[in-house]
Structure formats: C-alpha cells, structure tokens
Deep mutational scan, measured.
Amino acid sequence: MDGTRTSLDIEEYSDTEVQKNQVLTLEEWQDKWVNGKTAFHQEQGHQLLKKHLDTFLKGKSGLRVFFPLCGKAVEMKWFADRGHSVVGVEISELGIQEFFTEQNLSYSEEPITEIPGTKVFKSSSGNISLYCCSIFDLPRTNIGKFDMIWDRGALVAINPGDRKCYADTMFSLLGKKFQYLLCVLSYDPTKHPGPPFYVPHAEIERLFGKICNIRCLEKVDAFEERHKSWGIDCLFEKLYLLTEK
C-alpha cells in the first residue's frame, strides 16, 4: 500500500471551527459572476446526480424540485425535460440570464411583489422559475412545498455562521416524503479558508438530524488541478440523501 486515501476511508478533519467566522457578502458573489470567477459551475452537470437520477425519480412526473443557490445549473433542465417543475433561487441576475441563454430557453421576467426590487424569471414553458433574491428572503414569497431539493454548491457556499438559518429555510420548503439530495466537500479547512466551505458529517447531523434521516450514498475523489491553488492536495465530495423521519 502506498498510503493513498480512497473514497471509502475519508477521515473527518478535527479543526472544524477554523472557518466559522468566514463571510462572503452577496455583493462579492455577484462580483464573481461579473468577473467570470465561476469555476464552481459544471458545464456537463453533476455526474453523481446523473448516475442516481432515475433511481431517485422512480419514474414519477410532476414533482416540484428546488435548487438553492442555483446559478446556471444545467441540471435544472434535466428535471424540466422529465416533466418536473423547477424552482431556483440565485442572487446573480447575470447567472440566471446565462442559464436561459445557454439552454436556449425563452423566458419572461416579473417583479417579486413580496420582495421589493427583486425579480423572478420564468421559462415560456412555465416549468422553470428562478427567483433573483437572497435565499433568506425566499420564504416571504409563499412558493409552496417541494418534493425534492438538489443542494450542490449551496450549503458549502453559505457562510458558516448562517447555516442554521439556511437549514431552517430548507425545512420550511420541504413537503411530505421529501428527498433532499446534498453534496458537501471534505478537505483540510486549515489550508483553505473557503468558500466552498468544509462541511463535516457531524455538521450535517447537527443541522438536519432532528428532522431528517441522513444517509451518505457515495464518496468520490473530486480533486482537480485547479484545487492546488487552494493549498490542498486532497478533496473529496460526498452525496447524501436526507429523508423524512
């Protein structure tokens, strides 16, 4: 054995408090879109979701699917093309516009009456609605409950000090017999300040354990050449399924 860690023996890093005071403002996230600093976007979609999607959907149609901090995630069109209703929230209007443009979807925009100064973008087909606002303002819009949440790049982007508020927001959107698919990253948080932030299993239990059954479905090596600039040499991604207790 050469000592290389595999996707099945990932350790939890003990120094989980080192990132707790890290803060990125909404304006800084918007600047990332304006300046093209969106390496977190996956042009081909998320491979773990693609692998498990049909198993999760079980042939159902007409589900309501929520994408927190959606950006221009191509997976939104995957669900819409399968007959589901997609709702996303994203602070960057540019990111939302790029989604519709890159997916060749016509759309309209209208003000969100409950949140002055914000807009919702709706596909002409009517099954994709993307709200351009802070996720913490979203419950004011009465958008209803969801059958499924796809959380990739959301919890790991939320400032650590806001995670409890974020989890409570997610709980307010969950319908009966929900499936909450959650991706988190595992790396040494003493070497990279984030975002994306390190979210250990214990944190998921703390945030969601009282209401959800929590199961880790898969762990994969997600390290890429660009991650060397973070000062790390190891990065794993974990896919969790959260269901109603």
Rank of each mutant, 00 (worst) to 15 (best):
T38L: 11
D15L: 12
T169I: 07
L105H: 03
K51S: 10
D168G: 13
E109G: 09
L8F: 15
K191G: 07
C216T: 10
V89Q: 05
T113L: 09
L207G: 01
T38G: 05
V89Y: 02
L241E: 13
E237K: 01
S7G: 14
Q97C: 14
Q44S: 12
R82W: 09
F223P: 03
H84L: 05
C216S: 11
F99R: 01
L242V: 07
V87E: 02
D54R: 03
P200H: 15
F66Y: 01
D2Q: 08
I10Y: 12
W230L: 06
V120I: 06
D221N: 10
H46V: 07
L181I: 13
V199W: 00
I143A: 01
C132Y: 02
K20A: 09
S125Q: 09
C70I: 01
M1S: 09
G71K: 03
L217P: 01
R206E: 08
T118W: 03
F208T: 04
I128K: 00
L155E: 09
D31P: 02
L239Y: 02
V23K: 07
G161N: 14
G144P: 14
T190P: 13
S123W: 04
I128N: 00
T55K: 11
E102T: 03
K219T: 15
M148I: 07
E28A: 10
E224F: 12
E93Q: 14
G3Y: 07
F40I: 06
F223S: 14
L94K: 15
K72Q: 10
S14V: 08
C234A: 15
Y187C: 05
L69F: 09
R215N: 14
F197R: 03
L182G: 00
L239G: 02
R163K: 05
V23C: 12
Y13I: 15
E224Y: 06
D221L: 09
T190H: 15
P111E: 13
R5F: 06
T25P: 05
K177V: 04
E237A: 04
Y107H: 04
C133F: 03
K60S: 11
R226A: 14
G144M: 12
F79I: 08
L63V: 10
L174T: 05
P111Y: 06
L207H: 00
T190C: 12
T113R: 10
C133S: 06
Q42R: 09
A157I: 03
E75H: 07
S229D: 15
F67D: 02
V120W: 03
S7H: 03
K210Q: 09
R82L: 14
L53D: 04
I143T: 03
T169E: 03
Q103N: 15
K191A: 09
G83W: 01
W33D: 10
P68E: 00
M1T: 12
G209Q: 15
E12R: 10
L241D: 02
C133M: 07
V199L: 14
C133K: 00
I128E: 01
D2A: 07
E114Q: 10
C132S: 09
I10F: 15
V65A: 06
W33V: 07
L242S: 00
F121H: 01
S106D: 14
T141Y: 04
K238V: 12
D188N: 10
T6N: 14
A167K: 04
E203Y: 15
C133Y: 00
I158W: 03
D9P: 14
T118V: 13
Q47T: 10
E75V: 05
C165D: 12
G231A: 09
N159V: 04
V86E: 01
K32V: 13
P116V: 11
I112Y: 09
H201T: 06
I135V: 08
K177M: 06
L26Y: 07
F197L: 03
K119G: 02
Q30L: 09
Q47S: 08
C133V: 09
G59M: 14
Y131H: 09
E17G: 14
P200F: 01
G88L: 00
M76I: 07
S85P: 04
T16I: 09
T4E: 11
L235R: 02
G153M: 12
V89N: 14
H227Q: 07
D31G: 09
D81W: 03
Y13N: 13
C70V: 05
R82K: 09
D168A: 11
L155R: 01
R5L: 11
N35C: 14
A202Y: 14
Y13W: 11
W78L: 06
C183E: 09
Y107E: 02
L26K: 04
A39Q: 12
P189R: 04
K219L: 07
W78R: 03
P195T: 05
R64G: 01
P139Q: 14
H41L: 05
K245T: 09
L207T: 13
D31I: 15
L53G: 07
D9T: 11
N35P: 08
C133E: 00
T25G: 07
L217F: 07
R215H: 14
R82I: 12
G45E: 06
A202V: 11
T38K: 09
E244F: 04
F40V: 06
Y166Q: 01
V18L: 12
G83L: 01
V34S: 13
S129C: 04
I214C: 15
G62S: 10
L207S: 02
Q22D: 15
F223D: 14
V184T: 15
G88S: 02
L173M: 13
Y107G: 01
N159P: 02
A73Q: 11
I211W: 15
Q47D: 08
V87D: 02
I211R: 11
K72N: 02
G153E: 06
G59T: 09
D54L: 07
K122S: 09
R5Y: 11
Y198T: 08
I10C: 10
K60C: 13
A154R: 01
D221A: 09
E110W: 09
E244P: 13
D137V: 06
E237P: 03
I91Y: 14
G161P: 14
T4C: 08
F136V: 04
Y187D: 05
R206Y: 15
K238D: 13
I214S: 04
F66A: 02
F121P: 00
G194P: 07
G59D: 12
A222M: 14
Y166E: 00
D162W: 10
G153K: 05
T141A: 08
D147R: 02
F67E: 00
K50V: 07
L49D: 03
L24F: 07
N104C: 13
V86T: 03
L130A: 03
F171A: 13
L49T: 04
F178R: 01
S106R: 09
Q44V: 14
K219S: 15
D168Y: 14
G175P: 11
P68M: 01
K50A: 10
S129M: 06
V199K: 02
N35H: 11
E224S: 10
A154F: 01
H46M: 09
P139C: 02
R215P: 03
D147T: 02
V87S: 10
T101Y: 09
G209Y: 11
N159G: 05
V156W: 09
H41Y: 07
F236N: 15
K77I: 02
S229M: 11
K228H: 15
T141I: 08
